[in-house]
Design a protein around this nucleic acid. Structure first.
Lengths: 234, 234
DNA sequence: AACCCGGGCGACCATCGGACGCTGGTGCC
DNA sequence: GGCACCAGCGTCCGATGGTCGCCCGGGTT
């Protein structure tokens, strides 16, 4: 009688999931040289040396917008530009302080999700997951989305781990008139150096920082660290 | 020129993924009573009170075995029976010491996967994941599989966290001639008590134990803890 | 030999982490 | 006004965590 009818998955909690119901050495010197080679090795996915037949397929192209589509169109966010700390972006642009604030907001959304999950006895995320992005959107923060946040994680990481270096890099790239893409690329290098100084444990570097712990280590940052580490032993 | 051609996902690493390459108070008294109610509340998924239309669909039934199917059929493992510690299972049965050893083996397979991942600069699992089960299978441990291991995690948990209690329970159920299913159900209750003593943080209880840390907390154990916690405050 | 009980595990599903590349906003000429 | 650049983010995809229930092994009669 003890195990009578005791299927593992009761429906007591079904449908209870949240929101389904409801000058600088940065670019100079030996190491940068070395690192640049690393980046170039990681270029486009249609590289000539790809003999693998099980390489990834091209994604299907997006279906064009339906005619007569009625839903209210949320205009996309203004693009980011490289700003120095404290600088307001002019015109139809957003600054980097705003970008970093988005990461802090996500942290707060994660905490909310965690509280709700604990209350309900559900599995509790420790990282910013799809569920957290969904929560953010439902709560009205429609300007937050996964691809954007994942795109700039390493930039935020540098900001958290070495604010001075991050600030200098922003000023440098702003003064040079570089675009956001170039600044974003440049953020990788100091992080690789930080990993080197920590025995190449980039995961550990993230986990030891209170604000970073909740973000997944970006694939490409992990790859760059691996490449540099491999070079070191040859 | 800095970010020239720098797509996020190089193909340098493509195809590099691994393997594609008692009479003990256990069942008596106030608390057991209470806990039993908890279990009964969690019975079958076709419960009468389910008004939700987005409840889960029934799974499709398995395709019957192909005629002329040629692959060598690996016979299924012998069923487990309740044995006391150190006791060999007789006949075509497996004992619980063997069951628990399977969990230790999985731990070792996880360590192997972690070493390989670190070497390759890939994302490194902290838990027993699909990847670990795949590794075990490829390495020849075909007797290890996910559904089985997940089914008995909480039994292993009790064994790790309170070996005495676990041993007593085994003896008790063996002497009573209870089947494995009944023993398995009974393993939940002492764990719920353990959670209670730890401020209902079952996740924390798992994470603080070296052997358990690598296993996901079973959904049903979490649910049982939640139910008991809720009762406590009413 | 025939039967039935009970549990092993193949296979399924929702959802996840992750990434591509179209689309269109934006500044410049 | 027109054009070229570039980055926001909709959308897709392989793989994951989690589970159901079919199928059959095994003990009993």
């Amino acid at each position: 009688a003890l195990n009578e009818g005791a299927k593992e998955n009761g429906n007591l909690f079904l449908g209870g999931s949240i929101y389904l119901d409801t000058d600088d050495p940065v670019l100079t010197g030996q190491q940068s040289q070395s690192l640049t080679t690393g980046v170039l090795a990681l270029r486009d996915h249609s590289s000539e040396s790809d003999g693998e037949s099980h390489g990834k397929k091209k994604q299907k192209r997006r279906r064009p917008r339906e005619l007569g589509d009625d839903g209210e169109d949320r205009p996309r966010e203004h693009p980011f530009i490289v700003t120095e700390p404290g600088e307001l972006a002019r015109g139809k642009k957003n600054g980097l302080d705003y970008l970093f604030d988005l990461y802090e907001q996500c942290g707060r959304f994660l905490e909310e999700v965690q509280h709700i999950c604990r209350e309900r006895g559900e599995k509790c995320p420790t990282k910013v997951t799809n569920q957290v992005f969904r929560h953010a959107k439902h709560t009205g923060a429609s300007y937050i989305n996964k691809p954007k946040m994942r795109h700039y994680v390493h930039c935020y990481a540098l900001h958290c781990l070495d604010t001075n270096h991050s600030n200098h890099l922003r000023k440098l790239f702003k003064d040079r008139g570089e675009n956001v893409g170039a600044w974003r690329q440049a953020c990788y290098y100091p992080l690789v150096e930080l990993a080197r100084a920590n025995n190449w444990d980039i995961e550990g570097v993230f986990n030891r920082n209170d604000k970073l712990r909740i973000w997944y280590v970006p694939t490409r940052l992990r790859q760059l660290c691996h490449i540099e580490k491999s070079k070191e032993s040859s």
